[in-house]
Structures are given as structure tokens and as C-alpha cells.
């Protein structure tokens, strides 16, 4: 077994590095805690170990080793459940919830990252085994770059035009452009909203995008992201300051309204552009003949 040593070590190292690289501590702040890191790094280590011993095991004619991969898949589905459950628990007391689509998306990403790590470890260990450690190193770098590429994901800014529009009132109705946001009864609240509130209209670039921002989960993800990035005055029991996203039913445009901590319009627009496009919101009506002919 000794001749496999280098291959396995290289594989595990490459997998671990890949996991660290894609363990992004981004604005979603998840997992932003030491315990979250440890859990995910350790699971990444298991994934890397499984990936890197697969080929040596097959060379030793230990064909049953393949069943371990099935076990791994089971294990990582569990990771997804774990993420989903803990985020869904927190969701109940969130003032601006992530929305179930966003939670599901995050959970799915955590599962997929482990498979990427396993794949990188597998490639690196076989390259080292059949070539030498230098090929392994090269393959490892390629694998890590590929992982980053696959985990990048789209952002909303690539799909919609974000246009700033000042909120205004018609009687008690708060409107952005001609889209009704909500009915605000208290006159003091109306004054404050006019003074501190920000609004924007998202114009979809095509009908696929229109279907994406039609999705309630995607809209909730926009509100959650924007509220985290530029802050919100939303307080328990004070619904006047709730960030909201409503659709113009005729054009499919979405109006986003928020009362931020700092009234900075450019940051607000940039925050909307940074929102990740959720996998579960993706729809492609234009890929079908019916969708295409309905679009014009």
C-alpha cells in the first residue's frame, strides 16, 4: 500500500484546500462562526479522503470500496438536511426572513461543495498515481479553479436593469412608479417614509428573467440581502418600515421598497445587483416553443 501514500496525501490536501477556498465567508454570513467552519472543514476532510482512496482501492481490486461512495452521498445529503433545518429554525424569528427558497439554495450549495471536494481529490490522487506529484499539483490547481467557477452563480445585476424611483403616496397608498406597495395609515409614518425610504424598479431583460423575479422566494431573497447589506429600520411590531417587493402585473417589473439605516441610493442599487439568483427560482420559458411565441 505504501506506493499509494503520496497519491492519497496529495488528494486529501487538494480536497481540503478546495474546501477552504470555497468556504466563503461572504455577506450572507453563513457559516460565519468557528463552529460552522469546523463542521464543514471536517466534512470536507472526509469527502477528500473518500475521493482520494477510491482509485487506489480499485487498483487493489477492492471493488466493494465503491459502496463507500454511496455512503458518502448519503452522508452529504445529511449535511443538506442539517443546513436546511438550522436555517429554517432561525427563519421563524428573522425580521426580514431569507425565504424558504434561499434556505434551500444555501443547503443545496453546502451539499454540492462536498461533491466538488470529492471530485477534486479523486482527480488529483489519480493524476499523482498515474503520472507524478507534479501532475497532481497541476491538476489540483485546475480543480480548485474549476470549483470556484462552478460555485460562482449568477447575480441579479446580470439579468435586470435596476432603476431608482422615489416612493410617493397617493392618499394612504405607498407607491413606487405605478406599483402599489402598501397602505400606510399613520401620517407620521408616511412623512418618515418619504424622508428616509428608498425605492427601485427592476426591469427584466427578457421573459426568462421575468419568470425568475416573479418567484416569491427570489423576491424575499432580494429583500433579505438588501436589508443585510444596507440595513433596515424594520422593528418588531412596526410594520411600516417593512421592506417589500411588489410586481407590476402588466409588465412583470418588480418594485423594491426599503427604509434603510443609511439613505444611500447607489449602495441600495448595488446591493440589489449583488443578490444571488436562486436555483429554485430559475425558469426558462423561452427554451420552449410555446414560451417563445407567447413572448412576442
Amino acid at each position: 500500500m505504501a506506493e499509494y501514500g503520496t497519491a492519497i496525501v496529495m488528494g486529501i490536501a487538494a480536497g481540503l484546500v478546495a474546501r477552504i477556498v470555497i468556504l466563503r465567508n461572504d455577506y450572507r454570513h453563513y457559516p460565519g462562526y468557528p463552529h460552522g467552519y469546523i463542521t464543514h472543514l471536517f466534512l470536507g476532510f472526509i469527502a477528500a479522503a473518500l475521493g482520494s482512496v477510491a482509485v487506489p482501492a480499485l487498483l487493489e481490486k477492492e471493488f466493494t470500496a465503491v459502496t463507500f461512495l454511496a455512503l458518502a452521498a448519503q452522508q452529504f445529503r445529511e449535511v443538506r438536511n442539517m443546513e436546511r433545518n438550522s436555517l429554517a429554525q432561525l427563519e421563524k424569528i428573522e425580521l426580514v426572513p431569507r425565504g424558504l427558497d434561499f434556505v434551500e439554495g444555501i443547503a443545496r450549495v453546502f451539499e454540492a461543495r462536498n461533491y466538488l471536494v470529492m471530485g477534486a481529490a479523486l482527480v488529483v490522487s489519480s493524476l499523482t498515481l498515474f503520472g507524478n506529484w507534479f501532475y497532481g499539483l497541476l491538476g489540483g490547481l485546475m480543480g480548485i479553479l474549476l470549483s470556484i467557477y462552478f460555485m460562482r452563480g449568477e447575480t441579479l445585476g446580470e439579468l435586470v436593469d435596476v432603476v431608482p424611483v422615489k416612493p410617493h403616496f397617493e392618499g394612504a397608498l405607498l407607491k413606487i412608479g405605478d406599483i402599489v406597495i402598501m397602505n400606510v395609515g399613520l401620517k407620521e409614518a408616511r412623512k418618515k417614509i418619504l424622508q428616509d425610504g428608498l425605492g427601485a424598479v427592476l426591469k427584466p431583460k427578457n421573459d426568462n428573467v421575468r419568470a425568475i423575479i416573479h418567484d416569491i422566494g427570489q423576491r424575499q431573497a432580494i429583500l433579505n440581502t438588501v436589508a443585510i447589506l444596507i440595513g433596515t429600520k424594520r422593528e418588531e411590531g412596526e410594520l411600516e418600515w417593512s421592506p417589500l417587493a411588489r410586481k407590476n402585473i402588466d409588465t412583470g417589473e418588480i418594485a423594491v421598497f426599503i427604509v434603510p439605516n443609511e439613505k444611500d441610493e447607489e449602495c441600495f442599487l448595488e446591493a440589489i445587483r449583488k443578490v444571488p439568483v436562486l436555483e429554485s427560482a430559475k425558469r426558462f420559458p423561452l427554451k420552449t416553443a410555446v414560451g417563445r411565441s407567447a413572448a412576442d
Binding site: G171, A172, V184, G185, A189, E236, G237
Partner: peptide
Amino acid sequence: SRTLKAMAHDLE
């Protein structure tokens, strides 16, 4: 509104 944690709406 503040005691009931509810939102006031104006029917105009």
C-alpha cells in the same frame, strides 16, 4: 398599532 404589534391602514 404599537401595543398590538399591528399595522394601521387608512381606508380614507
